[in-house]
């Protein structure tokens, strides 16, 4: 089919071209296969199943838009799940960035015992999410947890943390601040990269602490802050493990041998979109509705990331 343009040189060069193309394909092949099988196919299949009734036991049957109207209109959990996910994206990401920057600034100023403090601040990040969550549910247990015991001894009224619908999400934010290590390290590296002379020059110009931060530090670390925001948003849209484990454990409901426990304790306040996908697909075996919700999540994720990526082009730049 392809006639090479007249300017193309001898067949030898063409062979080299083909060889290079094959070589490139060879190197890329693991990912090309992986992308097709583990991304392309499931995405198509998700669209297909979103129009099917399929309980994973009887053959799928076409139901038109029923799953879509069910999820978007007749399923009361959709709204709260979306709201909780957005709440977490906004509050958790911004607080993490501010706190991470604060800890980063603190660490760069510590003169004595810097190694100890750095390790102490970093270590919680390494705690596997399930263990960290289990530990926090215990620490913040309203009845017997050490935190409320301590607050009680000091005469401070203590909230019911994971057991109070108004406090459950803030408790999850607290948990995420405990594991700030990742942001601390990248902010620390970025802060140390700011040339000292710039600070000294600013100081000579009579700039105070705030002015120095505003005019020297901030411009230098903006790309990193953007990066932290983008990755934070991406991670928080997938927020799953901590919310699920915290809800289940704090509810104190023993695993029912018969019927399932709806995630989101207390009162749906920790139910996120990913948890609802799981609940629909693997607790109710409502494949169609779960796929609809998957596609909604997909659309939101793509919209948000393309928006954020346009603002921080750093991820794709630096060709060589």
């Amino acid at each position: 089919m392809a006639t090479p343009p007249a300017t193309r040189p001898a067949p030898e060069l063409r062979r080299r071209h083909t060889r290079e193309r094959l070589r490139t394909l060879g190197f890329l092949s693991p990912w090309l296969i992986g992308f097709t099988v583990f991304f392309g196919y499931p995405l198509l299949a998700t669209v297909y199943f979103s129009f099917m009734h399929y309980n994973q036991i009887q053959a799928p049957s076409f139901v038109g838009l029923r799953n879509w109207t069910y999820v978007l209109d007749r399923m009361p959990l959709f709204g709260p799940a979306l709201w909780n996910t957005l709440w977490l994206v906004v509050v958790m990401v911004s607080l993490r960035v501010v706190f991470g920057l604060g800890i980063g600034l603190l660490v760069t100023r510590i003169k004595t015992g810097a190694g100890f403090f750095r390790t102490a601040f970093y270590l919680p990040y390494l705690a596997p999410p399930v263990t960290a969550t289990v530990a926090f549910v215990f620490l913040l247990n309203p009845g017997t947890g050490p935190v409320n015991e301590a607050l009680g001894a000091l005469g401070i009224p203590a909230p019911n943390w994971f057991n109070d619908p108004d406090w459950a999400k803030p408790s999850l934010v607290l948990l995420s601040l405990w594991g700030i290590g990742d942001l601390m390290v990248i902010f620390m590296a970025a802060l140390l990269d700011v040339p000292r002379e710039q600070y000294e020059a600013a100081e000579l110009d009579g700039a105070g602490v705030l002015a120095r931060f505003r005019y020297v530090t901030w411009p230098a670390i903006t790309p990193i802050v953007m990066f932290a925001v983008v990755t934070g948003v991406v991670q928080t849209m997938q927020y799953y493990t901590q919310a699920l484990v915290a809800g289940k454990l704090a509810s104190g409901v023993s695993i029912g041998p018969g019927s399932v426990i709806q995630p989101g304790y207390p009162d749906g306040s920790t139910l996120t979109v990913p948890q609802l996908v799981y609940s629909l697909g693997f607790q109710n075996f409502d494949t169609g509705a779960a796929c609809v919700l998957s596609l909604v999540l997909f659309a939101i994720a793509m919209a948000v990331t393309s928006l954020l990526m346009r603002r921080s082009t750093g991820l794709l730049s630096a060709e060589d």
């Binding site: 309203p142 009845g143 019911n160």
Partner: peptide, 9 residues
């Protein structure tokens, strides 16, 4: 509910 969180398994 607070009292319930003091109960053992």
């Amino acid at each position: 509910e607070k009292f319930r969180t003091t109960f053992g398994d």
